[in-house]
């Protein structure tokens, strides 16, 4: 089987769970090889190997961090080009963050290939080539796409699969590249890291607790945070709550915010406008607390409570404590 390149997402050196998912998916149609755009931390290499990366390509050049998107494309194209020469490239998988999708698309142009973004799964087709599965129109459709020609490039959403270990001893290969002028066109002149909340990253989280307009004010997010911490969850917010200034935009779920597909999504005080549903509709289990029995969010719920979240959530929270003590 040929190699499948996986673009590693490892902010602060720690490999994200979504990258381990990509390695797991890659094994369905090839042999995973990881591309890391920073110094190779031994722990990271070990972890990539544990999930099946036979080779770890390391491109450690500050340009990849100082300029937007294009140097990452240069680096991937370089590694992909090398494998293509020996006919040894079955595909490329990236994450589905805005920048990762841009990387995937630009790489596809350079490889003369097609690209599918926001895949929720990748399957091996009858011919052994990958089939990308997407969820379209607020998850009302399942769309499967194949790649008639070229090297399939697929940007995959988090939580597509449960990461499975397949330990190998990875070979580490340093790659030197000289970036194009184009690669250095958009310079990142400042970067202010977001304050760590200590909670899981929203897009990776397997449980998300989200609050909306029904909270009535910023202080009520304390209820959401308390429940989130009890469930090991990330905190989300509807656009209405963000626009009201109750919670930071980086937590917004929906069409113009983050897209999440956790195992469990708890929506409190969120009516479920189509723009919100677009960001959470692929969640596996949805539970709802809302005082309006006609709120559209109930159409998606596996279990709903019609009631005031200011009463229901504290009781729920106490109940969790009680059951755990």
């Amino acid at each position: 089987m040929s190699h499948v390149l996986v673009l590693v997402d490892a902010p602060e050196g720690e490999v994200r769970k979504s990258t381990l998912e990509l390695l797991t998916l890659a094994r369905r149609f090839g042999r995973p090889a990881a591309v890391v755009l920073q110094a190779a931390d031994p722990a990271a290499v070990e972890q990539l190997g544990r999930y099946g990366a036979e080779t770890v390509y390391v491109v450690d050049d500050p340009a990849a961090r100082d300029f937007l998107v294009a140097p990452t494309v240069d680096a991937l194209a370089r590694v992909a080009g090398g494998l293509l020469k020996s006919g040894d490239l079955a595909g490329v998988l990236t994450g589905s963050s805005p920048d990762a999708k841009d990387v995937a698309a630009r790489l596809a142009v350079r490889l003369g290939s097609g690209v599918v973004t926001d895949a929720v799964n990748v399957e091996a087709g009858d011919d052994g080539r990958p089939v990308a599965v997407q969820s379209a129109f607020a998850a009302s459709y399942v769309v499967r796409s194949r790649f008639p020609a070229g090297v399939p490039v697929i940007a995959v959403k988090p939580n597509a699969v449960t990461p499975e270990e397949a330990p190998v001893e990875p070979a580490v290969e340093q790659v030197q590249i000289s970036f194009t002028d184009l690669g250095k066109g958009a310079r990142i002149t400042s970067r202010t890291p977001r304050e760590a909340s200590g909670r899981p990253e929203l897009t990776d989280a397997s449980v998300v607790v989200a609050g909306g307009r029904g909270l009535g004010g910023a202080e009520a997010f304390a209820l959401i945070e308390r429940v989130a911490d009890q469930l090991g969850a990330a905190v989300g917010a509807s656009r209405a709550a963000v626009d009201a200034g109750w919670y930071p935009h980086s937590h917004q779920i929906g069409q113009t915010g983050k897209t999440v597909s956790p195992q469990l999504y708890l929506a409190a005080g969120i009516s479920g406008a189509i723009q919100h549903r677009a960001g959470m509709q692929t969640s596996k289990t949805v539970v709802v607390v809302n005082k309006d029995p006609d709120a559209p969010i109930f159409e998606l719920s596996d279990f709903g409570v019609v009631g005031d979240l200011h009463a229901v959530l504290p009781q729920f929270s106490q109940e969790i404590d009680r059951r755990r003590s």
Binding site: G112, Y141, V142, V143, P152, E299, G304, Q315
Partner: peptide
Amino acid sequence: LSATVSATKRPPRQAGPKVVDEGEGGV
């Protein structure tokens, strides 16, 4: 370069039970 093999309408999600909170909603 990417071709749709199938586009299948997902059966509408079956909404699960909905209980009205009469003091025991959180439980």
